[in-house]
Amino acid sequence: MSLADLQPGALAVIEALHLAETDAHRLMILGFIPDTTVGCAGRSPLGDPVIYRIDGSEVALRRETARHIAIRIESPPAG
């Protein structure tokens, strides 16, 4: 399952980033680190990009990027 499948309002945990190393690095600096809880805060009016709540901030990603971020749905740790 990938981040692109996450519905608005839903929560998940990041599993892995299947992206080129530099891109993955950038995303990790923004907070997209494996085992971190991520929430889908909403979509842009045209459906893409999607806004994610991650590590205390909100980040907009295109679906083409979110597709490469693997997630798992589990009852996430508090916070």
Binding site: E58, V59, R62
Partner: peptide
């Protein structure tokens, strides 16, 4: 193609 769009709001 290599730089994906990421924008902190």
């Amino acid at each position: 193609v290599s730089t994906p769009f990421m924008l902190e709001l």
